[in-house]
Design a protein around this nucleic acid. Structure first.
Lengths: 152, 152
DNA sequence: AATGAAAGCCCCGCTAC
DNA sequence: GTAGCGGGGCTTTCATT
């Protein structure tokens, strides 16, 4: 990861669909060099994939929330089971396994508040390992789509 | 947003860099039709962009946390000011504006725990409007990168 | 590790249906 | 929405440095 690699990933974070030629032009290097760099970054696992950013409203996820979940008993297997279970639910956008007062934090997206209520009561409450949760409805979500590499 | 559009956005969420030809082949439609669909989806704001997914460790963000923040006074302008301020900090990956016991939830990523501590004390605590926060260190983060469209 | 040339493929506007 | 065509641009490989 030299400075050229850092710049490549920054540009690809901003626009993943720009052509290799365009990318090379912006970096001031030959397209073949650029292509080789990108392939190496992909092979090393630095670049994990390329994803379209879709407006949540158009996926019927106009209502989103963060749900902090408490789990008991607190064992590795129980946490993993619950995590795998909830991460497979269609309403769940992402799952954080955390330390602190909570054990999991779920980012969920649904069409309306009724569906949020139904998700909490019919899906989460059904699991005996989930002994409590707290829901924070999301008004806004701003995402940094061009993360810089921090100095160590 | 008919079923073809839904399938297009699903495929582009999974791999944003596949060619229009490849996309059309998978959908069983003509490339020209596919290109026109993608352009319309982009123009309508359904497709908001394309982003490379970079391994956080390679951006020196091996330590991540969710920070729940309380703000006072609770006015629109104060919340917006704090939100804009923190979303510009390099450590901040995303910011949720929420309802409930908390006012903001920050997803932050830093190289190590010392830097997390420094972020909390030197950056957050300096703001008088931030009257309290609670930090949950993240052990794992699983993301759903192919969100389906929910039925209404 | 980087380059430039060359072959092949893809994009995309155009046309007609 | 589909199909075919063609110019121009892009991708990718490879010999060379």
């Amino acid at each position: 990861m030299d400075e050229l690699d850092t710049e490549i990933v920054r540009l690809l974070q901003t626009d993943a669909r720009q052509s290799n030629r365009e990318l090379a032009r912006r970096l001031g290097i030959a397209p073949s060099t650029c292509l080789e760099r990108v392939r190496t970054l992909t092979r090393r696992g630095v670049i994990r994939g390329y994803h379209a950013d879709i407006n949540p409203a158009d996926l019927n996820r106009g209502v989103q929330a963060l749900v902090s979940v408490q789990i008991r008993p607190l064992s590795r297997t129980v946490i993993n089971t619950v995590k795998d279970d909830v991460s497979g639910m269609p309403e769940v956008i992402s799952v954080f396994v955390v330390a602190g007062g909570d054990d999991l934090v779920l980012h969920v997206g649904v069409p309306d508040l009724d569906r949020l209520h139904a998700f909490l009561l019919d899906r989460l409450s059904k699991r005996k390992e989930i002994v409590g949760f707290r829901t924070s409805v999301i008004f806004q979500h701003v995402h940094n789509t061009a993360l810089s590499r921090l100095e160590t």
